[in-house]
Design a binder for these strands. Structure first.
Length: 945
RNA sequence: AGCGCGAUAGCUCAAUGAAAGAGCACGCCCCUGAUAAGGGCGAGACGCUGGUUCGAUUCCGGCUCGCGCAACCA
């Protein structure tokens, strides 16, 4: 036999052939798909094809238009994209209109940083608008690069004039429904923002502050004696307070005691001779040791309530302030007597209301004491701290000064400490018109995933204060209302006027600000004009995005409220989920969503949040440009997003490995579908071989599982299942076995066409399972699949629906039993291999010894058992005849003994099986009988494998 | 204070009131007709601790650790 003949026979094989490359080169190839999709208008084609199908509406929470996208953005958009594409394949009309949050302070800051301050507000706003637009462009490119498909050329931007107009209408409705009021309240004030902040914009961080104890002298000892009764001891009488914000002392209007706590009158000497102080009984020792008083004596105890109303001397102003009572007083720190400045704290404010204290506001928007504030006018509050401490020393009122590390509210953008400052602000009332109650009712109507998210938002809505919706900033949507100069009441025609103003806002502008600036009070209010003034505040940006349910639905025909799903990171419980809920309930009395799904954050392998300072940032752009967007998408899908999602080099590498495995499985299927025309060569399920029918059944079962996992948004299960299918069912079993048939049987034989029919079906199914996740690769597979000669095929996988799974008669074969036998044989083959008896399994012959059902099941396959086991011979014998060296199958099938031997027969030059009949055909000396028949005869017949 | 979520092999994920599965990674072997592929074999895990139960990784309690929310803001 010459080499030449060998080669000739190789040409008679049907080896795989495909242009679908093994190497994905995703970074190189993905942009090409993006171009194609865009050029072909894929998104629009999907819309057209989905017309009339039941809708699935995902509302896109708008990312803030500033900075490059990070992993959190990527996770969020990819999850959204997976869901939208799933519903598309599932036969729904699922439009995706992305949005951006465009107003607000961070943009103002960036613009000021780059271009300095502007005198002209209109010009400044134009600069902000230009800047935001640039950010949108940049983020849009990055989002698209991840394969996120949507109406990217027609996004909703909160700065679109039309959006702003709808926002005004939303405000009008909320005002009409009676939820809005103007209040003078202490709010979190960011000195860098020069604006009030919403709860959601505050975060607590550790800060070092001066902590001081301050004497408040009792004004009238006689009055004290009368209240306390049986006064004892000698010396000056005072009530010391403790604070970490000395600068708030100019605003002090009272000292609060707890009505029910015990207070002690303590006689002591802290370096100024004998004196007496009132201190919470439980704190006496701590306070005394803090003051350095070793020798002190408790003269008596009284409940705080007995001192109610007693006057104290302000430590450095000519002001007498009362002792008041409040339940907020605790014994955690301090002296049990709480410095109360109604303008500088929430509880202080409440206490001030209850006790009719003056509400003064000595600090300006810039953080400096207002002119006219004695001793500290013009000083910045933090400089004020030091000055106040000096003043206290001068007045001998300072008992103790020490630095303290404590957690303190900070601006979440600037990371700088906030102050509490009383200012006039606009609020949405949580309770005035039952907003809180209705919102809580609505929360219970929504499907929250995971379900504990419901508790979480309930707790937040239950406990939150009124929503401060005003900001003292330029880059936002004006609160375009008139208030009465004296009464602060809204003009009675406010709602009507808002509608007039909204009507003046054009598609391309003017925007709300310009309209409001140009609005003429005389024209709008007539005779009332003189008594009313224009409000110059803008709206909290959370209000902007929060009313997306209204604004975007008004602008885009395809959107409506409520949406089926809001999907955001879990931080949005206090952000967008809540602002959307509140605006929607305030407007319409119902939630803007039927379902809410949350995901965790991306963290590094040590579970740490990604942060610039730690330097553990993984950039989505970098992954897309190195491993490919599909690998990034696969990582998102593979992670259990309910908790934190760990990213690391190792994890990404693993992800890329499993990507390759799935890709190669697809490649093998495609390669062996070469020359297969589904419209010509399809074999009816009833005519297919048993093993191929098994493959169809397995595919159908898996599809059911995959779809169920998609429906319940458990993408990590999908990834596991598909990957497992590729590795175990396909690579490790089915594909390995059918190679013989595919390669060696005549191209158009039933045996080969049956396998191809199954493979075609598997590929058609799998490409769809993968499409929502591996969008690029699925499209690549889709284009490589053989097109039926007789019919059109959708031009993109995303224009198709799930593959129909034919009912197949599984027959009597128990495949799990056969697989068990195969595994047992493999273990024996491995032992033979290790002994050096065999290499390839085709070098072996197998003798199986068993009885009963097992024997029958194996016997049914006849000679085809050897193809299942991929050995050259597989012979069956009664168990009784087993030789001494036959090995009992240790696990799996009962009553099976296996004997593996090295084949003595010649190897067929074509199929590589070692057979007795090699050379029996004179025309084909190097071939076995069936190969000779396959090459030159009618071809073999197969029924099983 | 607290509340919630989580803890399964090196990694990513399963399942289960009764011998805990998979893939990747790892070790060894084979193949060279899926070849920057493929096949086989192997080793490897229920955070700790009580209780309920005939039996607990699974149900309940406590602890530890991680994460989130909340709190601390005088």
């Amino acid at each position: 036999m010459s080499d030449k003949t060998k080669k000739d026979y190789k040409q008679t094989l049907n080896l795989p052939q495909t242009a679908f490359p093994m190497r994905a080169n995703l970074p190189g190839r993905e942009p090409g798909w993006l171009e194609t999709w865009e050029r072909e208008g894929l998104y629009q084609k999907i819309r057209a094809a989905s017309q009339g199908r039941p809708k699935f509406l995902l509302a896109d929470g708008p990312p803030y238009a500033n900075g490059k996208i990070h992993m959190g953005h990527a996770v969020n958009k990819v999850l959204k994209d997976i869901i939208v594409k799933f519903h598309t394949l599932d036969g729904r009309d699922a439009p995706y209109i992305p949005g951006w949050d465009c107003h607000g302070l961070p943009i103002e800051h960036q613009v000021e940083k780059k271009k300095g301050r502007f005198e002209d507000k209109l010009k400044f706003r134009q600069a902000c608008r230009d800047y935001a637009m640039k950010q949108v462009e940049q983020q849009r490119v990055d989002f698209k690069r991840l394969g996120v498909l949507g109406d990217w050329e027609r996004p909703y931007l909160t700065m679109l004039p039309r959006y702003e107009a709808e926002q005004l209408r939303a405000l009008a409705t909320i005002i009409a429904n009676g939820h809005v009021y103007k209040g003078y309240k202490p709010v979190h004030w960011c000195l860098d923002c020069r604006s009030a902040l919403a709860e959601a914009e505050v975060e607590y961080q550790d800060k070092r502050s001066p902590s001081i104890d301050v004497r408040f002298a009792v004004v009238d000892e006689a009055a004290f004696a009368a209240a306390w009764g049986e006064p004892a001891g000698e010396g000056a009488l005072s009530v010391p307070i403790w604070t970490t914000t000395p600068w708030t002392l100019p605003g002090n209007q009272a000292v609060a005691l707890h009505p029910d706590l015990e207070y002690s009158l303590v006689s002591c000497d802290v370096g100024n001779g004998a004196e007496r102080m009132v201190i919470a009984a439980d704190l006496v020792d701590r306070v005394m040791s803090r003051f350095g008083a070793s020798d002190y004596r408790v003269l008596g105890n009284r409940a705080g309530s007995v001192l109610n109303g007693l006057l104290l001397q302000h430590p450095f102003y000519d002001r007498q302030v009362p002792l008041i009572l409040g339940d907020h007083v605790t014994l955690d720190a301090g002296t049990g007597a709480v410095h109360t400045a109604p303008g500088h704290g929430q509880e202080d404010f409440a206490a001030g209301l209850a006790n009719d204290l003056p509400l003064d506001n000595p600090v300006g928007a810039n953080g400096c004491f207002l002119p006219g504030i004695e001793l500290v006018a013009g000083l910045h509050v933090y400089k004020g701290n030091d000055r106040i401490i000096e003043i206290l020393e001068e007045h001998k009122a300072l008992l103790k000064l020490e630095p303290i590390e404590h957690s303190y509210p900070h601006c979440w953008r600037h990371k700088t400490p906030l102050i509490f400052r009383a200012t006039p602000q606009w609020f949405v009332s949580m309770d005035e018109k039952g907003l809180r109650r209705t919102a809580l009712d609505e929360i219970r109507q929504v499907a929250w995933t995971p379900d504990w998210a419901q508790q979480r938002i309930e707790a937040m809505v239950e406990g939150r204060p009124d929503w401060c919706i005003s900001r003292q900033r330029a880059w936002g949507v004006p609160i375009a209302v008139f208030v009465h100069r004296e009464t602060n009441e809204l003009h009675p025609r406010t709602v009507e006027i808002l509608e007039i103003l909204a009507g003046r806002i054009g598609e391309e502008g003017p925007d709300t600000f310009a309209v409001w600036q140009a609005a003429d009070a005389q024209e709008l209010l007539g005779d009332d004009a003189e008594d009313y003034e224009k409000v110059t505040d803008t709206m909290d940006v959370w209000f902007d995005s929060g009313c997306m349910h209204h604004a975007a639905s008004a602008i885009f025909d395809e959107l409506e409220s409520p949406a089926d799903l809001y999907l955001e990171g879990s931080d949005q419980h206090r952000g967008w989920f809540q602002s959307s809920l509140l605006t929607s309930v305030a407007m319409n009395g119902h939630a803007p969503y039927r379902g809410v799904l949350t995901h965790g954050f991306a963290v590094d392998e040590k579970g740490r949040k990604m942060s610039k300072s730690v330097g553990n940032i993984v950039e989505p752009q970098k992954i897309a440009n190195s491993l490919g967007a599909d690998v990034l998408r696969l990582w998102v899908a593979a992670a259990d997003y309910h908790g934190e999602m760990t990213v690391s080099d190792e994890i990404l590498k693993r992800t890329a490995d499993s990507y390759r495995r799935m890709r190669n499985t697809a490649r093998f299927l495609l390669g062996n579908l070469h020359g297969y025309d589904p419209s010509e060569n399809k074999v009816a399920p009833g005519d297919m071989l048993a093993l191929d029918r098994w493959a169809l059944a397995r595919t159908a079962a898996l599809q059911a599982e995959v779809l169920e996992a998609y429906r319940s948004y458990q993408f990590h299960l999908i990834y596991q299942k598909i990957h497992n299918f590729c590795v175990v069912d396909m690579g490790g079993f089915y594909l390995d076995i059918i190679k013989d048939r595919l390669y060696t049987m005549p191209a158009d034989s039933v045996g080969r066409r049956s396998a191809q029919t199954a493979m075609y079906h598997i590929a058609e199914s799998m490409v769809r399972w993968l499409a929502p996740i591996l969008s690029f690769t699925a499209e690549e597979i889709w284009q490589a699949l053989p097109a039926p000669a007789d019919g059109a095929r959708e031009e993109s996988v995303l224009l198709s629906l799930w593959q129909d799974q034919p009912e197949v008669d599984p027959g009597d074969t128990d495949w799990s039993e056969l697989i068990g036998v195969r595994d047992a044989v493999n273990r024996e083959l491995e032992r033979a291999r290790e002994k050096g008896d065999i290499g390839s399994s085709l070098a072996a012959e197998v003798d199986l010894y068993c009885d009963g059902n097992l024997q029958e099941a194996l016997a049914a396959l006849g000679d085809e058992l050897r193809f299942l086991l991929i050995t050259s011979y597989a012979r069956l014998h009664p168990a009784a005849g087993k030789p001494g060296d036959a090995v009992a199958a240790d696990e799996g099938p009962e009553g099976l003994w296996i004997s593996v031997s090295q084949s003595e027969h010649a190897k067929c030059g074509r199929c590589w099986h070692r057979r007795e009949d090699v050379g029996s055909n004179a025309d084909h000396e190097s071939l076995c009988g069936r190969c000779a028949d396959n090459v030159d005869g009618a071809g073999e017949a197969r029924r099983w494998a």
